[in-house]
């Protein structure tokens, strides 16, 4: 499990990255994160929606309501051009952090599992 702060910071790039792979709705996004992380990254499900709402307000995603096969209305989220750009910025930031850690932690075998 990752810490609350780290989860909060990583939510936005993760969502954008998932949406880069195609249009999707909230429940599926959460399932994907769970699947990829093997359960290590888990959000309080309700907390996802305010973030999605914020991304929509900032213009990084566009939304539409689709009626599913079971007749349930679902809100689908699709990444916009601005969203992709934002994702790239995020990736750059995360990668630079990643590089620092790589260099810092490499000689210490105890941290390499």
């Amino acid at each position: 499990m990752i810490s609350k702060n780290l989860a909060a910071a990583s939510t936005k790039p993760m969502i954008l990255a998932i949406l880069r792979g195609g249009e999707n709705y909230g429940y599926q996004i959460i399932q994907r994160v769970k699947e990829i992380s093997g359960g290590d990254v888990e959000w309080a499900d309700g907390m996802l929606y305010p973030v999605l709402h914020k991304l929509e307000k900032d213009g990084f995603v566009s939304t539409r309501w689709i009626i599913s096969d079971e007749g349930r209305r679902r809100k689908y989220y699709k990444i916009t051009a601005a969203g992709k750009e934002e994702l790239n910025t995020e990736i750059k930031q995360w990668m630079s952090v990643h590089k620092v850690f790589e260099k810092l932690w490499e000689p210490i075998p105890a941290y390499q599992q």
Binding site: A44, D45, G46, M47, Y49, P50, V51, H53, K54, K57
Partner: peptide
């Protein structure tokens, strides 16, 4: 339980709005 506390989510919505 999985969705979380109503007031916390509400607060987050408020912050984004």
């Amino acid at each position: 339980g999985k969705i979380g506390k109503v007031n916390d989510i509400g607060e987050e919505y408020f912050k984004s709005d």
